[in-house]
Simulated assay, not measured.
Amino acid sequence: MKLILTSEVTGLGAPGDIVEVKNGYGRNYLLPRGFAIQWTRGGEKQIASIKKARDAREIRDLGTAQEVAGRLKSLKVVLKTKAGESGRLFGSITTGDVAEAVKAAGGPQLDRRRIEITSPIKSLGSHRVSVKLHPEVSAVLDVEVVAA
Rank of each mutant, 00 (worst) to 15 (best):
E58K: 08
V145P: 06
A148K: 14
S7G: 12
G11Q: 09
P15R: 05
K45Y: 14
L31A: 07
V131S: 01
R128F: 07
I50M: 13
V143F: 06
V68T: 13
I4E: 02
Y25A: 11
V98L: 07
Q109G: 08
K132E: 13
S7I: 01
K103P: 04
K73I: 02
L79Q: 06
Q66R: 13
A69S: 06
T81W: 02
D17K: 01
K45P: 10
T118P: 07
R71L: 13
R114H: 15
L75H: 08
G16P: 06
V77S: 03
E8M: 05
Y29V: 03
R54C: 10
R54L: 15
R113L: 10
T6C: 08
L133H: 01
I117C: 08
H127D: 06
T64R: 01
G16D: 01
R60T: 15
A139E: 02
H134M: 10
T94H: 12
E85A: 15
T94M: 07
R27N: 11
V77F: 01
T40I: 01
L110S: 04
G106E: 12
L31T: 06
K52H: 11
T6L: 12
G26N: 02
H134S: 08
E8Y: 01
S138M: 13
R88H: 15
A147C: 14
F90H: 12
G11N: 13
G84C: 10
L133D: 04
S86W: 01
E67P: 01
P15Y: 09
E144L: 13
A104W: 04
V131L: 09
K51G: 05
I4V: 13
V145L: 10
K82I: 00
K52M: 10
V102D: 05
V143R: 06
K73R: 15
G87S: 10
L62D: 05
K51D: 08
G106Q: 08
E8Q: 12
G91D: 12
A83S: 09
G96Y: 12
Q66A: 04
A101H: 05
W39A: 15
I121Y: 12
R27Q: 15
L31K: 01
I4F: 04
K2I: 03
G106H: 03
K80G: 07
S130F: 03
V146E: 08
A56G: 11
V98W: 04
D55W: 00
G24R: 12
T40M: 09
D142Y: 06
G96P: 02
S123I: 12
L3Y: 06
W39N: 15
A104D: 15
L89H: 00
V140N: 06
V146D: 01
A83N: 04
V146F: 02
G26S: 02
G11L: 12
N23C: 00
V145S: 02
I115Y: 04
R114I: 07
L30S: 02
F90I: 11
R33S: 03
E144S: 04
A99W: 01
D55H: 03
K103V: 09
E100Q: 06
A65F: 01
E136A: 12
K122Q: 12
E85S: 15
Y29H: 11
T118S: 14
E144I: 09
H127R: 08
S126L: 13
K76V: 14
K103Y: 10
G43L: 10
Q46K: 09
